[in-house]
């Protein structure tokens, strides 16, 4: 076969290449550059190899906040995904109530992060906040500024309030895309509501759930503003997550080297976990493709 190679086509890729270079590769390389040097001033920079990485990885502050971060993201996903699916299943499908519930659900998504933090900071206060006041009057001792469990619960609740809508809206659109014939066939096959959910709705939601889980994982793993506004990372370090630790290091103490190494590690963790999520969820599909190529 005579294949004509026209290498001029590469020029057409150039604009995209430049765009990606300036928007992602070059900034990232700057960080990589910082992470392997010890810089004292403009003229005194020493190559230190992986020293910063070693230092950062053995830093108990980072280890603690990493553990907290995983626990936080894990809990967020465990609450928001099932809750979002439930909300989507219960939403009305037609009439004005459908539009109303869509608007109500979309509202939290429209509020800026720091405003969300401020809302909850006041809402959950035990002296003047409605939520804090009510909880305390129910006889439960609740104070998110002094009790770390309360602080955790508040940050979680805030995230659930803010972001469950996203999962619910994604699932709602996914559910609407299922043709009626599937439900009709299920009725004819005498499927129970659970079987309908398990064998029709859930498999058909797979696509939107991958997007939802990835978005929620990445967002919650990089959470900064809300806990910063609500608790400032406290009490103690109980709600100090990775990004806050990083900011303290980079801007508070101006430890550019370790902070850069930290950033790279942070980035790699997000990338790795997202990749793991994605491949695990789509694992079944890949198997099917393999299976087919055998025939």
């Amino acid at each position: 076969m005579n294949k004509v190679q026209n290498n001029k086509a590469w020029w057409l890729v150039l604009p995209v290449f430049l765009l990606v270079a300036f928007s992602a590769v070059i900034p990232l390389m700057t960080v990589v550059n910082y992470s392997v040097q010890d810089i004292f001033d403009q003229n005194n920079a020493y190559f230190v190899g992986l020293e910063w990485y070693q230092e950062v990885l053995s830093d108990p502050r980072l280890q603690d906040s990493l553990a907290r971060q995983f626990m936080y993201s894990g809990t967020v996903l465990l609450i928001e995904v099932p809750l979002g699916i439930c909300v989507a299943l219960m939403m009305p499908t037609r009439g004005w109530t459908a539009s109303l519930s869509l608007i109500v659900l979309a509202l939290p998504l429209l509020i800026p992060w720091n405003v969300v933090g401020t809302i909850w900071q006041i809402f959950a206060r035990s002296d003047i906040g409605l939520l804090g006041y009510v909880i305390n009057n129910l006889g439960i001792d609740y104070n998110y500024t002094s009790n770390s469990v309360d602080a955790w619960a508040t940050v979680l609740l805030m995230d659930v309030w803010h972001w469950t809508s996203l999962i619910a809206l994604l699932c709602y659109s996914g559910l609407r895309a299922i043709p009626d014939a599937y439900y009709q066939a299920a009725r004819i096959d005498r499927a129970s509501s659970w079987a309908i959910f398990r064998f029709i709705q859930l498999p058909k939601l797979q696509g939107v759930l991958i997007i939802g889980v990835l978005l929620r994982f990445m967002d919650s793993f990089m959470i900064y503003t809300e806990p910063f506004v609500l608790t400032g990372g406290g009490p103690g370090n109980s709600t100090t997550f990775l990004s806050q630790t990083l900011t303290k290091m980079a801007i508070g103490q101006f430890d550019i080297g370790p902070a850069a190494a930290f950033s790279i590690i942070y980035f790699l963790i997000v990338l790795l976990v997202s990749w793991l999520f994605f491949t695990t969820i789509t694992h079944l599909d890949k198997d099917k493709v393999k299976e087919q190529s055998h025939d």
Partner: peptide
Amino acid sequence: QDRNIAQVFQFPVIYDS
């Protein structure tokens, strides 16, 4: 469910998973 009827639709309905 209780009519003992089977129906085949225009587009095949199968349980994907």
